[in-house]
Amino acid sequence: MREYNVVITGVGGQGILTAANLLGWAALQAGYKVRVGEVHGMSQRFGSVIAYVRFGEDVYGAMVPEGKADVILAFEPVEALRYINYLREGGLVIANSNPIPPVQVSMGLATYPSMEEIKRIIEEDFKGRLITLDAEKLALEAGNVITTNVVLIGALTQTPGFPLSAEHVKEVIRLSVPRKAVDVNMKAFELGVKAAKELLGL
């Protein structure tokens, strides 16, 4: 495979870098050449965050070029829109449906676009497909809201054409989380898989 490109976006503190690292390991252990791009420091403090996970023979740099992401995994709806220029035509956007209003919106200095507007831009202007799921709710159902990122990774594995098997990714997560957290993470992963299957009509 020449390359597969995942862009993960959200708000600093949502577990985006952990998700990127987990996916990177899953790709590595499946035998691929891997690059994961992230930014630490100032950029992480509750601001908008983007991480890149890339694997395949043609992968060199750590950042996905604009127009080349096969899938955008957004931990927050407007953060999908902020980085929509990375999506390739026909790419998939998987977004958590819970908005986190930025401080500027609460102050009345900016407005938060409606979900209809977000969907229209993704599907019409950028020729992508959007599915949304309430990942926090599923994480709570699994037993801990901290597993929101694992719900979303579960959903990601259902992307049509995703090169890693859900079982493989799940196993990497199982071996990576603290022992006492295995069950809740496995449940979260499965709930993400199930939700995405339904949304994608699989």
Binding site: V11, G12, G13, M42, S43, Q44, R45, F46, G47, S48, V78, E79, L81, R82, P101, P102, V103, Q104, V105, A110, T111, Y112, P113, E117
Partner: peptide
Amino acid sequence: IVPPRPPSLC
């Protein structure tokens, strides 16, 4: 139309 989300104090 995307609202800014700069980093902020925690």
